[in-house]
């Protein structure tokens, strides 16, 4: 059984609008009933950082390291610039070899102590 209803265009528009309004009411009710009540809002993030972090100027890791060294470890920074990073390969090798030589001596000493039962 098919029920046919012929309508004026304006009445058709009103009927369709009424149907849409009713559907909107039902759909909105269902939506707000079914969606989770406890919502945890997260701010927009870019590259793993929040918008407030990314929108500010942020220093790179290298800049942080050298900034710390220059400001809080001046003597150490002096050693680095004057003894190691002079531009000469000999200075770098001397510095590394002296530390490595000390490490080798300590390693040999610990080995001897272990072998003799200490």
């Amino acid at each position: 059984m098919i029920i046919e209803v012929v309508m004026d265009p304006s009445i058709t528009a009103l009927i369709i609008l009424a149907g849409s309004g009713l559907t909107l009411l039902i759909a909105a009710t269902l939506y707000y009933l079914l969606k989770s009540r406890s919502v945890r809002t997260t701010e927009l993030y870019l590259s793993g950082e929040g918008e407030n972090v990314v929108s500010n100027l942020s220093p790179g890791v290298g800049s942080l390291y050298y900034g710390f060294m220059k400001r809080f470890a001046k003597n150490l920074y002096k050693v680095l610039t004057e003894s190691v990073h002079t531009g000469s390969l000999h200075d770098w090798f001397n510095f590394i070899a002296s530390w490595l030589g000390l490490l080798v001596l300590i390693a040999i000493l610990v080995l001897i102590l272990m072998l003799t039962g200490w």
């Binding site: 059984m1 098919i2 029920i3 046919e4 209803v5 012929v6 309508m7 004026d8 265009p9 009445i11 058709t12 528009a13 009927i15 369709i16 609008l17 149907g19 849409s20 309004g21 009713l22 559907t23 909107l24 759909a27 909105a28 939506y31």
Partner: peptide, 30 residues
């Protein structure tokens, strides 16, 4: 939600179900 409601409201103009609403120029409304 309004978009979803508009689609489902207009679908009654297609002769799919038992009720068949028709009228001049209803294509424009649809």
């Amino acid at each position: 939600l309004i978009g979803i409601a508009c689609i489902t409201g207009a679908i009654v103009l297609l002769p799919i179900g038992v009720l068949n609403i028709r009228g001049p120029l209803d294509y424009l409304v649809f």
